[in-house]
């Protein structure tokens, strides 16, 4: 980004690869868990306890952030196949959106944790 002779692609590709692994291995289980959420309140509380508690949710939001970068990197490269030729604007908008979603997760996590502590 700062050096014109170097590409920033490896960073996004690395996040894409990690996210792809998360989607393939962890996401099916997470989706199944959310689908059974409302069958009982206890299940909801248990699920919430896992994904909203400070330490487990740190793992959970990491997984969600990797999924975000995976999905948006794929969108970025598939635009080419749909006759949209990406430029700097597409780059900024798509990866900016990924950064924004990541930030939203981190802010939510921080508020929940500090709300509990103070």
């Amino acid at each position: 980004m700062f050096r014109k002779d170097r590409s920033d692609e490896p960073i996004y590709w690395g996040l894409f690869g990690a996210g792809g692994m998360v989607v393939a291995i962890a996401l099916p289980v997470i989706i199944l868990a959310t689908m059974g959420l409302t069958h009982s309140l206890t299940d909801t509380v248990m699920f919430g306890e896992i994904i909203l508690s400070p330490l487990p949710s740190l793992v959970f939001i990491s997984l969600m952030i990797l999924c975000t970068w995976h999905a948006l990197h794929r969108v970025y490269h598939t635009l080419h196949d749909l006759n949209v030729h990406v430029g700097t604007l597409h780059h900024l908008v798509i990866y900016g959106l990924a950064a924004l979603i990541s930030l939203a997760f981190i802010v939510c996590w921080a508020i929940l944790v500090f709300k509990n502590i103070f």
């Binding site: 989607v23 996401l27 997470i30 989706i31 959310t34 994904i51 959970f60 969600m64 999924c67 975000t68 995976h70 999905a71 948006l72 794929r74 969108v75 598939t78 979603i101 939203a104 997760f105 939510c108």
Partner: peptide
């Protein structure tokens, strides 16, 4: 990837 993105937004 679009459906994955939708699910991530659900979790957000």
């Amino acid at each position: 990837c679009l459906l994955v993105l939708a699910f991530v937004l659900e979790m957000l």
